[in-house]
Structures are given as structure tokens and as C-alpha cells.
Design a protein around this nucleic acid. Structure first.
Lengths: 118, 118
DNA sequence: GCTTGACCTGGAGTGCGCTCCGGGTCGGAG
DNA sequence: CTCCGACCCGGAGCGCACTCCAGGTCAAGC
């Protein structure tokens, strides 16, 4: 359980200090522990979790989607089925998104070839 | 040179009527031809061009980047070198983005496996 | 000739996701 | 003791990319 100062957590997650606090305020993770003088101390669990959040954002989820996701994790009356389902549907969305971007990449390649020799 | 009514252009590009007009206003394409009563008539050239714009947006360019891109296309004092360079750098950016999303996909897969059997 | 529906305009409004701000606390260096 | 830099807070502000709106025109169908 390594501990990270805010600045290091920011560096490791790629999010700004403000954004980390913002996510925490919204309940997307944490609450983060504090040291004696009230400053946050992020654990590597926190950092890893934020990493997942970043992935989900990249998959196209909005902030409120993430909140819903956290809600499902907290209310496990159905076991993990709901969580798994939600993750899977977003994996599919991410796959679709990657596919679209790959098409865009091909288009760019075409355009580059076009402008290069005309 | 097939012609498309606004609704069809919208459907083909995946952009709303408002967004099509918005892009045109900003000079990202067009100006689009009009019929006798002032309504827009999109050509397939327009539609294809908007398709490229969508690809560039997907590659992470903002609207002002697209305007810059159009500027370079109009001012060809350097031949196409500038345009090609710009397209290439954005292709690289798109590649990097796809790579990140692929990592996110792997993370999601891991998480799914994790929640499925615990 | 009336209605309907698609489209027109310029400008205002919206939602999202941060990002910044002012004022404050704390611990360590000089 | 003073300064500095990192961090704290709640709340305001911002930039982007649309999106909506009011009020209007037009063509076609009944």
C-alpha cells in the first residue's frame, strides 16, 4: 500500500489536482485518507481505481455514467452481474469507437497519399 | 455529382442539420449551393468532405484546428507540403489515441474477468 | 386557400468537464 | 521569525461544441 502525495497521484493518473478533487467530490472514488494536517494521501488502490475511471471516460462514458457505475458497485444486491454487464456494454462501446477511429485513420492515410502526389 | 437534401446530408454525415450549418458558417466546408428557394443542396463532394472533417474531429482536432487546416488548404504557397505535414501529425495523434484506447480495452477486459469470478 | 413539414436566419442558450480563484493552513528551509 | 511551496476549501468562471429558438419562407397535398 504505497502512499502518494497529491502531486504524485496527479502525475500517475494524468489528471490535474483539481480534477482529482473534483472526481472525489462527485464520489467517483475515495474518500481519500488524510494525514494529520488534512492533506490527502492517495493509496495505490486509489490510483489504480482512477486509472479505471480514466479508461471508462475514454470509452465514452460521461461523469454521470461513472456515478451510476459507482452506484452499482455499492449496491451489490444482484451480486456482480450488473457491474459485469455494465462493463461489458462499455467494452463493446469502446471497441466500436476504436473501429470508427481506425476507419478515420484509413481515411487520413488516403488523404495523405492524395495530397502527396498531386 | 449526386445532390442531397439537408436531411439526407445529415443522415449520411451523421451530423445534425444545425451542426452542418454551423460547420459551414465557420468555413469548414462549402459554401453549399442553394436551390431556387434558398434551401441548401449538398453535393457528394460536400458530404465526403464533411466525412473527412468528422475523421479529423475523431482524431482529436478542435474546431479551430479544422479552421487552420482549411486555411492551409486555401493558401497553397508551399504546395501541399504543409497540408501533408498537418495530416500526418494528426494521423500520428490518432494512432496514439487508438493505442491508449486499446490499453483501456485491456483494462476493461481484466476488470470484467475480475468481477465475473469473485 | 389552408395546412403541414422541411428548411431558412441570426443570435441566444445549454451541458459538460473541468479549471481557476481568493483566502487560508501547514511544514520545512534559511 | 519569515518565507515559500504544496495543499486545503467552496464556489464561480470558462471554453468548447454544439443546440435551440422565434419568426419567417416555400412547395406540395388535400
Amino acid at each position: 500500500m504505497t502512499a502518494y502525495a497529491p502531486a504524485e497521484a496527479s502525475e500517475r493518473t494524468g489528471l490535474s489536482l483539481d480534477t482529482l478533487r473534483y472526481y472525489e467530490r462527485l464520489g467517483l472514488f475515495g474518500p481519500v485518507q488524510r494525514n494529520s494536517s488534512g492533506q490527502r494521501v492517495y493509496t495505490d488502490h486509489d490510483v489504480a481505481w482512477v486509472g479505471l475511471l480514466v479508461c471508462l471516460r475514454r470509452a465514452g462514458l460521461g461523469i454521470t455514467d461513472l456515478q451510476r457505475f459507482m452506484g452499482r458497485l455499492r449496491d451489490r444486491s444482484n451480486g456482480n452481474a450488473d457491474v459485469v454487464e455494465l462493463l461489458e456494454s462499455n467494452r463493446d462501446r469502446l471497441r466500436a469507437e476504436i473501429a470508427k477511429m481506425t476507419v478515420a485513420l484509413d481515411v487520413l492515410d488516403d488523404k495523405i497519399a492524395h495530397y502527396r502526389n498531386n
